[in-house]
């Protein structure tokens, strides 16, 4: 599955995370946020993960870092199973950048102190001046002015706040970063800048990314390979070009169509003959999870749940119709 050939940096197998939902009317129910997802990420690779909100992509990212404990499956990082071990030595190797930059920075800490938290976690015994140089260096890495160190988060713009979030993650010199919707809460102009920064950092520092977003056009710009998630399952996994230009799963095609047209002509050309847009189909008890919205569902889709299988080399898809379409 791994295009890099050698051992992948991160390998997850059949990872599961279930939540119990208590509802007075309907009693207890189980939400299968992540339901048996397997994938590999090679060194210096960017794996994009797309899906709509509630599909479990964020939960997957957090479960990989063990910020939430997985309920099943295994996580192997750099050849070692980290599913049950004490994560402390791995914290400096794996990092996360969050979606909402205003929420992920402590409003009562100055920017310098926020970044210092990472610096202290990595190297607690630095002298004062070394520590200060580290902080200024990190600010420079993310193209922020040194005087930002003395400001509070609310004094910065959204894009600058996100840069601080990235600097904090970089402070421990990680090799793997989960980017959890890092640009979704930002303005378009900032989005482009942050993506550029992340790509630049990857090149300079040799980082590996798991890039999570609901927007395929953003993921596409960042990723080598793309995984598409739907309701806790990985439904398609392939090279970015293949996912975008030869999507195998009907849901992937729906995601591509959802991207707003880049110009009015394309918008007019797109035949808007969408059958039933009515939201919230609910999760079917059995069969393919997408069967109720799928435009090419056949009877078998309502009975059998498809597994992720290869449709062409390096291109995997979980659809009962598979490559037959």
């Amino acid at each position: 599955m791994d295009k890099m050939g050698d051992t992948p940096l991160l390998k997850i197998e059949k990872l599961k995370k279930y939540y119990e939902i208590r509802n007075k009317a309907r009693g207890k129910s189980i939400l299968r946020a992540v339901d048996g997802v397997s994938l590999n990420i090679g060194r210096r690779e960017t794996l994009g993960l797309v899906g709509e909100s509630g599909c479990g992509k964020t939960t997957l990212g957090r479960a990989i870092l063990r910020l939430t404990e997985p309920d099943g499956g295994s996580i192997t990082y750099d050849g070692r199973d980290i599913t049950h071990i004490n994560m402390f030595p791995y914290r400096s190797r794996m990092q996360i950048v969050f979606q909402d930059p205003s929420d992920c920075l402590d409003p009562r800490c100055r920017i310098g102190d926020i970044i210092a938290e990472g610096v202290d976690a990595k190297a607690p015994k630095l002298s004062k001046s070394e520590r200060r140089d580290m902080i200024y260096g990190l600010l420079e890495t993310v193209s922020l002015a040194p005087d930002c160190a003395h400001r509070y988060p609310h004094e910065l713009s959204g894009g600058q706040q996100q840069r601080v979030g990235i600097a904090r993650a970089l402070a421990v010199a990680p090799e793997f970063i989960v980017c959890d919707e890092p640009v979704s809460a930002l303005d378009v102009s900032y989005q482009a800048q942050i993506i550029e920064l992340l790509q630049d950092l990857q090149e300079r520092l040799g980082l590996t990314y798991l890039f999570i977003s609901h927007d395929l056009s953003v993921v596409r710009r960042m990723s080598d390979r793309i995984g598409v998630m739907y309701l806790g399952k990985l439904v398609e996994l392939a090279k970015a070009e293949d996912v975008v230009f030869h999507p195998a799963h009907p849901y992937t095609r729906a995601l591509i169509e959802a991207i707003p047209a880049p110009d009015p002509k394309t918008a007019r050309e797109r035949s808007r003959t969408h059958a039933d847009d009515r939201a919230d189909p609910g999760i079917p008890d059995k069969g393919c999870r997408y069967c109720r919205l799928c435009e090419c569902a056949v009877p078998v889709c309502h009975i059998d749940e498809p597994e992720l299988t290869s449709v062409s080399p390096g291109h995997f898809c979980a659809c009962n119709l598979g490559h037959k379409q």
Binding site: R62, M87, Q95, D103, C104, E117, D120, A121, R168, V172
Partner: peptide, 21 residues
């Protein structure tokens, strides 16, 4: 708040998270 999660991801210890944040 996510900044607590960020601190946990950085490997900051409980006592320090309590004191600092």
């Amino acid at each position: 708040c996510t900044y607590i999660e960020a601190a946990r991801a950085l490997g900051v210890r409980h006592d320090k998270i309590i004191r600092r944040h």
